[in-house]
Amino acid sequence: MSTKKIQVGIIGGAGYTGGELTRLLIHHPHVEIKFIHSRSNAGNLVSTVHQDLMGEKLMFSADFSNEIDVLFLCLGHGESKKFLVENKIDANIKVIDLANDFRLQQNASFENRKFIYGLPELNREKIQSAQNIANPGCFATTIQLGLLPLAKAGLLKEVYTTGITGSTGAGQSLAATSHFSWRANNIQAYKTLTHQHVPEIMESLNQIKPFNHSTIEPLNFVPWRGDFTRGIFISSQLQCDKSLEELNELYESFYHDHPFTHISNESIFLKQVVNTNKCVIQLEKVGMQLVVHSAIDNLLKGASGQAVQNMNLLFGIEETAGLHLKANYF
């Protein structure tokens, strides 16, 4: 591998995912950040927005340069397509989009670019030979990692899923439900059975199911807003006649060469994954009822961390580079 560093550009650097991406890439051993784009903050130090980066000399820029190897799009949903239309990006530049613009197969081809769905535990080989990546959604990542082994084994039946997410999942723009006074000591269900991540989840589960099995039944998903800032905890319930021992072996085998997904025999909890790129999974079974618990950090494995993981795969470097992170356990 060449010793030349990967030249990176970030579009939308003032938001939560742009900030997390900057924090990761500043310390990445194989990366040099060429620019962090933000029209509203151009000319200001990045630390004026992301104040924990005080001391770093990075500046926001209003200019876009093609003198990069990879471009991260950290924009709002629907804005990535608009950016690609309005800006001429050299064909040799790899693009990693963190929004939902290109995740579904029907939207994966755009402006002579073909986007591969960037869940490494599902599409690692495709990612390694890709030019453009559609980074998965945070709820989608957590639910899929909990269910993919069952789908591959042909064991996935109708699933009832509940998940709770922190306030950063709503993005940096203020809304009534993201204010501290609303979130504190509060929980609310939202987008019941209609969450926008369900279609990408169903595409992945149907992609990996045995070819001679019928289409997997729709997912019944109820998301909750939680009283904390970051992280997602999912519980998915379905009927299954396999023993817990058999199922744990199935999951261990499926994820044995994936460095960020881990199976636990003990109860999992959110603090194990917050501030890491990990997903932890635990299986519980009572009678014929199986419950799969899965947890991630929505801003890392659910967004910017997974984007860096995808970049590592695109450029043939160690998949875990720049992602050896410490959990905020206490």
Rank of each mutant, 00 (worst) to 15 (best):
L270W: 01
T168G: 00
F72L: 10
V85M: 10
K34Y: 00
S236V: 02
M1R: 10
G43T: 07
Q172L: 10
N107I: 01
S294C: 06
A134I: 06
E56N: 12
D69T: 04
N206P: 06
R230D: 12
G55L: 03
G316S: 06
K57L: 06
I268P: 01
D241Y: 01
L290M: 11
V222S: 13
T161M: 07
G13V: 07
V292Q: 02
L45P: 06
S47D: 00
T17S: 15
I68W: 03
T192S: 14
Q282G: 03
K209G: 05
E79G: 06
L119K: 12
A176M: 14
R103V: 02
L148D: 01
Q105C: 03
E249T: 14
W182S: 15
G43H: 11
L238T: 12
F233G: 09
P259E: 02
S109R: 08
Y16W: 00
E203W: 08
R103Y: 01
A130T: 04
S129I: 09
K152D: 05
I187R: 15
G316H: 04
H293N: 14
A42S: 15
I268V: 15
E32H: 11
P29E: 09
K126H: 08
H256T: 12
A175D: 13
D69H: 10
E245V: 13
I89D: 03
D90S: 12
L58H: 04
E158F: 00
Q196R: 11
F83I: 09
L299I: 13
V274Y: 05
K326P: 00
L156N: 07
V280K: 08
P149N: 09
L150N: 08
I164N: 12
Q51S: 14
P259C: 10
